[in-house]
Amino acid sequence: NGGKDWFNPADVIVERDAKAKIIGAKLARDGLPVEIGGTEKMSKSKNNGVDPQAMIDAYGADTCRLFMMFASPPDMSLEWSDSGVEGASRFLRRVWRLAHAHVSAGVAGTLDTASLSDEQKAVRRAIHLAIKQASVDVGQHHKFNTAIAQVMTLMNVLEKAATASEQDRALLQEGLETVALLLAPITPHISHELWQRLGKQGAIIDAQWPKVDESALVQDSLTLVVQVNGKLRGQIEVPAAASREEVEAAARGNENVLRFTEGLTIRKVIVVPGKLVNIVAN
């Protein structure tokens, strides 16, 4: 009749080829063909609403909260994605596995911040950088999605961190406590359970928001990108207090830079402090 009848995805059987590409669809109750449209705004008339309770039953409330708050800022609309919900669930399982492995190894000792190795300093810097940035994201801008991104970045560091020594384990304890606290406003249930498993007393909702240790953010050395005529050609590591002349000299002496400037005349060296060096040559 020229109009459209909308069917909920749960009432449709989707047909796929060997590569999982959709090749057709039909209505479950009578087998009539169904046309799959594009992304549409949720509405009753289009019969495309997602039942929150069904998602909560399948993944838990924390997963649903994490997905919705990560997919978009709270004052904007978001595109619903079942794969996005599954991704949120996988991330929380990663957090749980790391915490479980840590707790199973026994009680961690006290961290001695005065005797950290360079690798341990890098891990602790990642912890306090996440605290600093997430505090701004949540406290000032109310952008939970970027705060979650900070926690995900921190988790990547913690999963690769060493666990051999007592200092390593104490540092991981600090990192996991930070993850639990930063996630608490977003995923309160798993965060509370993690808080208890990590040996902390009381409810996490009553715990103080983590404070930044500014001394942990101080870097002894910096890794700078080196470009030749705007194209990435290598990296150099220089002391954080290095002068412009020292940075330029290190860049000029880089093996890749020498290779790409062979036979050319260096006309200018642009140094962007703390970020990059661009060598202009022809």
Rank of each mutant, 00 (worst) to 15 (best):
N1M: 13
N1L: 08
G2W: 09
K4L: 14
W6H: 13
F7N: 00
R16D: 06
D17F: 11
K21C: 03
A25H: 13
A25L: 11
R29M: 11
D30K: 07
D30H: 06
G31H: 07
V34Q: 10
V34P: 09
V34C: 06
I36P: 00
G38T: 11
T39I: 15
M42H: 04
M42K: 01
K44Y: 12
K44Q: 09
G49A: 05
D51V: 05
I56D: 05
I56S: 01
I56V: 15
A61R: 12
R65Y: 11
M76A: 06
S81H: 07
V85M: 07
V85H: 03
V85Q: 08
A88S: 15
S89Y: 11
F91C: 07
V95W: 02
R97F: 00
A101D: 15
V103N: 03
A108M: 04
A108K: 00
G109A: 10
G109D: 09
L111I: 10
A114Q: 10
S115G: 09
S117W: 02
Q120Y: 00
K121N: 06
A122N: 05
V123F: 03
R124Q: 07
R125E: 05
I127A: 10
I127P: 08
I127D: 12
K132D: 15
Q133W: 02
Q133P: 08
S135Y: 01
V136C: 02
G139R: 07
Q140N: 10
F144V: 11
N145I: 10
A147G: 10
M152T: 01
N156L: 04
V157C: 00
V157I: 12
A164N: 12
A164M: 05
A164T: 13
S165G: 03
D168Y: 01
L171I: 13
L172E: 04
E174N: 05
E177P: 09
V179K: 07
L182K: 04
A184W: 08
T187C: 15
I190W: 02
S191D: 07
S191H: 07
S191T: 10
W195R: 06
Q196K: 13
L198M: 09
G199I: 00
A203N: 09
P210Y: 00
P210S: 03
D213E: 15
D213K: 07
E214R: 03
E214L: 04
S215L: 03
A216W: 06
V218N: 01
V218L: 04
Q219T: 05
L224D: 04
V225P: 04
Q227M: 02
L232A: 07
L232S: 01
Q235A: 01
Q235D: 04
E237K: 11
A240R: 15
A240K: 14
A241Q: 14
S243L: 10
S243K: 13
S243Q: 12
G253W: 02
N254E: 15
V257H: 10
L258H: 00
F260M: 05
F260W: 11
E262D: 13
G263E: 04
L264D: 14
T265H: 00
K268V: 00
V269T: 13
I270K: 00
V272N: 05
P273A: 03
P273L: 02
P273S: 05
K275I: 07
N278W: 02
V280D: 14
V280Y: 08
A281S: 11
A281T: 01
N282C: 00
N282V: 03
